[in-house]
Amino acid sequence: MLAVDEVTTKYGALTALHAVSLHVNEGELVALVGPNGAGKTTLLSTVVGLLRPTGGTVRFDGRTINGLDPAALVAAGLALVPERRRIFKDLSVAENLRLAGVTAKAPDRKQRMEQMAELFPALHEKWDLSAGFLSGGQAQQLAVARALMCDPKLLLLDEPCLGLAPTMVDVIFDLLQRLRSQGRTVLVVEQQAQRVLGIADRGYVLRTGTVVAEGAGPELASRADLFETYVGGS
């Protein structure tokens, strides 16, 4: 479904991604892990069109999408839950969701909003409240719900557990598993590497802008050698 082929992305003098390749098949939950600064966020930003790659191609559903506007990619079926959520704090919860359905037809949008109310009862209680008043966990749920409003074929999540209390982290992991059982295709960047690999179909380990390992999720999670680089050792 998503095929990233030898993508290189630069920020000024810094080459953040060196010819990275990865793919996501339909219905998979794929985890992308790696230490801070490895280029995970850069990769997601490149996929959704916020950054332009200097080399390589990104294909989605067989179509080359690098250089396309993020808005066009949403229409094509890609949605990102950005790092640090970036919900619209001045808009109400409902308005956040409605805006996220901007590409959908009015009846679809309505129907999806009802789905979100069902899927996230905690949000439904705060429907008309400004999103700025939500707690961290609720805000993260809103960020996910907002992306789901785009009814994406592929959902990308960037560090959904960042800054959340442990109980909320559990909620987010539950949500990931639920999305997976619903047959959604998901690519998630997460810092809690072993935990997320434990529930993923497949995983990639990124380090200083290159893929250093890939494989089935649980199998990667058990490979101690990969995580020595995290905790030092050697």
Binding site: Q192, R195, Y230
Partner: peptide, 12 residues
Amino acid sequence: RVIEAYLGTQGA
């Protein structure tokens, strides 16, 4: 505790 915080081992 450090290993867990960094890797998010299962069953935390």
